[in-house]
Every structure is written in C-alpha cells, then in structure tokens.
C-alpha cells in the first residue's frame, strides 16, 4: 500500500532523513521508532506531502505523492505531535471545523463527529471547551480530529507524549480498534513498549537513517540479541565456579554480584539444562533472574545507546 523508496531530505546542512526505504502493507501497523530529532516527524511530513523529499519516491496506493498530493491528503489522517486544537472552542466545534476542511457535507460530518466522539469516549464532554480538558483527553480529541474524513491511512506522530497511563491505554484501544476495522496505521514513537505492543513492523531510525526494520522477531534475528539468565549462588565456592566456567565457556562469573550469567538463544528451552549443569557441579542456587529479548535491548545493540525521553 505504501512504498517509500530511497527518500532523503536535508534542511540546510542537516540531513534530516537519509536514504530511507520501507514498505507498509494494507491494514498493518507500522512503527517508526527513534529518539527525538531522529527524523520521524520529517518522514511523516514527507508522507503527507507537506515536505518535499529532495530525493526518492513515496508511492501510496500506486500514486506518487509528487504527482497528486491533494488526493493523498484525502486518503490520510494525520495526528500531529502537538495538541493542534483551538483551546477556546469546544471539542465538538473543533471537530466540526477540522472535519469541515475536507468538504464533507454537513449532515455526514455531524454523523462522523458523533461517531468519532464515541470512539474516543468523549461524548459527555463534547460541548466543553478544550482548555478545560486534561492532557490525555486533549490527545484523544487530537486523534479524533484526524478521523473525521474517514481516512484509509492514519499517521500518528508520538500520540502519547505526556499522557498518563490510563489515557495512554485508552489511546491504544482506539488505535487497535481502528486497525481491526482495516485502517493502515503509521505510528511514530520513542516509547519501546508502545512499538512492541501493537506494531506489526518496526523501523528503527537514528540520525535520519533506518538502522533496521522488520517484525520484532526479524529485528531480534538481525540484532542477534540473546536472552540473559542470571543465577545467584548461595555459596560462592571458587572451585565450583572454576569447574563450571571451564566446562561451559558460555557461563561467566560476575564478581560484583556473585552471580553466574549466561546468554541463551531461547531462555525457555535452555533454563533447565543450565540449572542441572550448575547443580551437578555442586553449585547451590539461591535465586534465578531472566531477561528476555525486547526492543530496548535490540535498540541498544543496534545503536549502541539507550532510547530516552
């Protein structure tokens, strides 16, 4: 449905996006993961034809964005990173205004507004001014305003920044509901757990370049990040430690914590074998910690840095 091919964009001397390529299938949730300033918003603006790429092509449903930006704008709903609403207007007035820009007949627009208010669960606050809303509620209206013209593609640019966990879950439910109804979703975030939770495919972006992309499983394979098993011994006996580490070179002893550590391909399969091995060598296990492969560890492995707010 969406093909981005070798897209580059510079602002002065700064390469905001460099040689970016990816494809998104219909009905997919595609996550773009990266720290602030990585180029996520630039990609969103290129997709929406707001920013012209210096190089490369963006093809959506067979239409090149260079040729027919207006049609593509009708196809796409964009939720900006900022809460781009008029604080002095009510939720309903805001939605009528933003929806009205797409030349939807008024009765149909009213219907869409009411339906969307239900989706974001704000029917009972629809006549209240935005300035009286909490941050999370504003975020929900921000999303609602992008849905009124029934877009086939929804682009969400960091939609949960500064949102409390309850409202965040609410937003996730909305996204999952829209996706279940067949909407293609592009989701930019710097929160790993969000990308991990519902993205079918993830592109990891750093300093304007895509470092890796694919499903979580594919990313795990690409990054070669393994699960980590930590075994805390009740009695640290140097003879036992030496025997264990010499017999199994994958095992290493961490003096600081007094624990044995081992990286495994699949922690569920390997845990019993390793426990038996330690016990057979005379080791007494006090406690076991497991750390599975997640996006954070993949990101750390691929970029060499942690992803922070």
């Amino acid at each position: 449905m969406i093909t981005v091919r070798s897209v580059s964009k510079s602002f002065g001397n700064i390469d905001a996006v460099k040689n970016v390529s990816f494809t998104i299938d219909k009905g997919e949730i595609f996550g773009i993961l990266g720290p602030n300033g990585a180029g996520k918003s630039t990609i969103v603006n290129i997709l929406n034809t707001l920013v012209k790429a210096d190089k490369g092509d963006v093809i959506i449903d067979g239409v090149n964005t260079k040729n027919d930006g207006d049609t593509l704008k009708l196809m796409m709903g964009v939720v900006p990173q900022e809460i781009a609403l008029y604080e002095e207007l009510s939720a309903y007035e805001n939605m009528m205004f933003w929806g009205g820009l797409y030349n939807i007949p008024k009765p149909e627009l009213k219907m869409n507004v009411n339906k969307t208010l239900e989706i974001v669960d704000l029917v009972n606050r629809k006549n209240d001014r935005i300035k009286t809303f909490s941050g999370g509620m504003k975020r929900r209206v921000n999303i609602a305003c992008a849905l009124l013209h029934n877009p086939r593609i929804l682009v969400l640019d960091e939609p949960t920044v500064g949102v409390d966990p309850q409202n965040r879950n609410h937003i996730f439910e909305v996204i999952e509901r829209l996706n279940n109804e067949g909407m293609t979703i592009i989701y930019t975030t710097h929160y790993m757990e969000e990308a991990e939770r519902f993205c079918d495919k993830i592109a990891i972006i750093d300093v304007g370049r895509i470092i890796a992309q694919g499903t979580l499983k594919e990313l795990r394979e690409i990054s070669d990040v393994r699960d980590l098993l930590t075994i805390k011994l009740a009695d640290v006996n140097s003879e036992t430690i030496n025997r264990l580490t010499s017999e199994n070179p994958l095992l290493r002893f961490d003096n600081a914590s007094g624990s044995l550590k081992v990286e495994c391909g699949n922690i569920n399969n390997d845990i019993q074998i390793i426990m038996n091995h330690v016990q057979n060598a005379g080791g007494v296990i006090e406690r076991i910690y497991t750390q599975g492969t997640n996006l954070e560890s993949i990101y750390l492995k691929l970029t060499g840095k942690e992803l922070r707010d």
Binding site: L50, V78, P80, E82, I83, A84, Y102
Partner: peptide, 13 residues
C-alpha cells in the same frame, strides 16, 4: 507555534 498551522496544511487547504 501551537501546531494548528501545520494541521491546517495537512488538510487539502
């Protein structure tokens, strides 16, 4: 500054 101009530009305007 509050992003509404960009949002207006996201629309067919």
């Amino acid at each position: 500054e509050n992003g509404t101009i960009n949002r207006l530009l996201y629309s067919p305007l």
